[in-house]
Structure formats: structure tokens, C-alpha cells
Amino acid sequence: MNLVALNPDSLALGQPLPFALRGADGTLLANKGYVLRKQDEVDLLLERGVQLCVDIEESGESYRAYLGQLQQMLISDTSLGEIAAMKIDGSAHANTARARQGPVDWPELQWSTTQLLGSPNAADFSARFLALQGEVARACLQAPDATLLALIQRSSDETRIYSATHVLLVASVCMLVARDGLRWSSEQVERAGRVALSMNISMTELQDRLAQQNGPLSAAQIAQIQDHAERSATLLAALGVSDPLWLDAVRQHHDRAPGPLAGRSEAGQIARLVQRSDIFAARLAPRAGRTPMTVTAAIKACYYDENRQVDEAGAAMLNTLGIYPPGALVKLASQEIGVVLKRGATPTTPRVAVVRSRSGMPTGELIRRDTAQENWRITGVVSQQELRMRLPIDRLAAMV
């Protein structure tokens, strides 16, 4: 169980409960669908000292929908009175699904992730974190290629809020590979996303500082990096995370033991996938004193393990994302330069939008190309530095 305390005032009278209501010890107080008719029923439980809780693992999308509504209200500067008055009822999921079908506002999500992970507060951490994870999961489900394109491109030039951008990309890659490449259960997919988003919570500020630091690491910085996995797990537990698999995977996410996934615990399997995805995202990100890899080189670096053997999680990444994932910069047989928009029928034949003509000039209009056709086949990769232009990420994502 993963129990989260519930504000009694948020329960709507006369409406079916969209999830089971439990006590702090997990005791079932009311089944999903039960209708609370009078406030007296709630008051009686509170007078007995019962703390009302919901089991996140049991509740499915209904509680996440409620959290999503809260998140949207916070983002849109809704008054505190309206937020406090919001009730949970059976229509919450449907209303949220209707309200959250549009594209993700990635700059907004980058900043809110920085705020959440950089200054976590136990009072609201669970609600805000699950709303964040739900938004990333929605993006991966509804628009996986556009999500990869946006986050890979943002990771390739972001140094101010590096830590948040990094974990958003790692979480997205993990959930996509877990779902489509490794065929894990939906519960494992969600847990992989939670681990990826929270793995560096103990050094969010340090990572942002290091992304712009020119000099060598100090002894204190090295020590912080070396023990951050254990410190992150300890901090998450203090913030209310009680899922042992989540915490164990965070502790193990920097372990470098090669070998197949089948010989590992469930937490160990998730940690290995997170570790491979972490390497990929880190190698394509810029630093003040380091040139980033191309996207293709970064993903190939994850394919082999520490013994130079094919890594199971790394291979699943390459097979899922392709050799040229969305967001990669490529050169075509036509001498044009393009950005990969969408994965194709094979790992080497994605759909591309041309951003530089064969003469080397930026194209005013973004031109689609199918690289499965000989005239537009991919002949090489291009680095962000070679491109020397800022890409219209939102326009590109809208073309997917």
C-alpha cells in the first residue's frame, strides 16, 4: 500500500466515492462507490481519531485526476478559497481527462519540477509529485514522439534548470521503454517514472550549479554526488514515500553491475533501466566546460554494458527510441539538415522536418521528409553546435 492522507473537507456528500477510503493503518472504511449521505458519517470517524487516507496504488486514475485538477488550479492562480473548496467526486476523472488533452507546457513543467524537487515540503509533496508524474505519463501516452522531441531538444541546450529537465527526460524514456520495449505492467511503468523523477531529489540545486560550473568539482561536491542515491531515498521516506520498491530502486539507480534483467529484483530491474536512461540524458546535455554528444551517440553509449556486452535495458532503449530518436539532428542525402519528428517503420527511417536547406540557409518553412525514400535517406548526424540556430520546438512538436 501507498497511503496518502486525505482532507476530509474534500469529500463530496451524495456522490459515489471514486476510490476506497482507508484509515492510516490501511483498514477499509468505505468501499469504492459508497455514497456518503451526511456530514455526520465523516464527523463520527474524525471524532474517533481516524485519519482518512487513500491508497494510491489501489485508486487507479481517479485520485490522480483529483490531484491533476489541483495542479491545474495552482498553475492558473486559482484563489486559495476555490482550491480549498474543491471536492472529490466520481466525475473528477472525466472532467480532468477533458481538460488535459492539449500539449504539455514544457517550460512551465520544467519550472514547477524545479520548485517541487528543489524545495520539497512533506505537507504537499505527495499530491504535487503524483500530479507531476501523472502529467508526464499523460504526455508519454498521448504524444510519445512529441514528448521525446521536446525534451531531447530542451535537454540539449538547457543549463539553467538542468536537473528538472534531466529527470523529465529520463522519466519519459523510462516509461516509454518499460511500456513498449520491455512490456512491463502498468504498475511497473508508473513506478519507473516515479523513481526517475525522484532519483536526484537530494542534489537538485547542486546539479543546476554544476551545469554552469567551469572549474573542477570540490571534495564536498564529489561527496554529495557519491552518496546522493542513499540521501535521496532517505529524503523521500521523510516526505512520506512508503513504497519499498520505489525507495530501493532510488538507492540502486547508480549501481553498475552488468547482466540480464531477469536475475535482478524488481527494484533492481527498474534501477537498471533508470541508470541506462540517466546515462543517455546526461551525455546529450551541455555543461559549461563540456561539449554534449549527439543524440545518436548518446543512445549508442547505453547499448553496451560495463563488460562491453549488449545490455538488455540499453538494447530495449535503442529498439524503442530508434537510432535516430525524435529530437535528433540528421543530415540527409539531399544535403539538407533536419530534426527527427517521429519514429518510422524501422529504427533508421524516421520522419524528419528540414530546418536547413542544401545551401546551408535556415528554411523559413519547415519541410517534412520521409527518410525511407532514397533521395532523403539519412547519411549522418549533426551536433547542436554545428546547427548554430535555435529551433522552434513548439512548432516542430506540433508537426508530429
Rank of each mutant, 00 (worst) to 15 (best):
P325R: 04
L321F: 02
P347I: 08
N319D: 12
S334P: 06
S334H: 09
Q335I: 03
N319G: 10
S334I: 10
P325T: 05
I323D: 09
G338N: 13
A345L: 12
G327P: 08
E336Y: 08
V354I: 15
V330N: 06
L318G: 00
L329D: 03
V352Q: 07
Q335E: 14
I323A: 11
R351K: 14
L332S: 03
R343K: 15
S334R: 06
V354L: 12
K331P: 02
T348I: 11
R351Y: 14
L341V: 04
A353C: 09
S334C: 12
T349I: 10
I337G: 02
E336W: 10
P350G: 10
A345V: 11
V339S: 04
G344P: 07
A328N: 10
I323V: 11
T320A: 09
V352R: 10
T346E: 01
L318A: 10
L341M: 11
P350A: 11
T320G: 10
G327W: 05
K342Y: 03
I337D: 00
T320M: 09
V354W: 07
K331I: 05
E336K: 13
T348V: 12
A328F: 03
A345T: 11
T346N: 04
Q335A: 14
A333N: 14
V355Y: 03
A345C: 08
E336R: 14
G338Y: 07
V340K: 08
S334G: 06
V330T: 02
L321E: 02
G327H: 09
R356S: 10
V354N: 09
R356Q: 15
L321Y: 05
A353H: 02
Y324F: 15
Y324R: 12
A333I: 03
G322I: 01
A328M: 04
T348M: 12
T346Q: 04
G338I: 15
G338K: 12
S334K: 12
A333T: 09
S334D: 15
G344A: 06
A345Y: 07
L329Q: 11
T348S: 12
G327N: 06
T320C: 10
V340M: 04
T348L: 12
R343F: 02
N319S: 13
K342R: 15
L321D: 03
G327I: 06
G322C: 04
V355T: 03
I337T: 14
Q335C: 11
E336T: 13
P325F: 00
V330S: 01
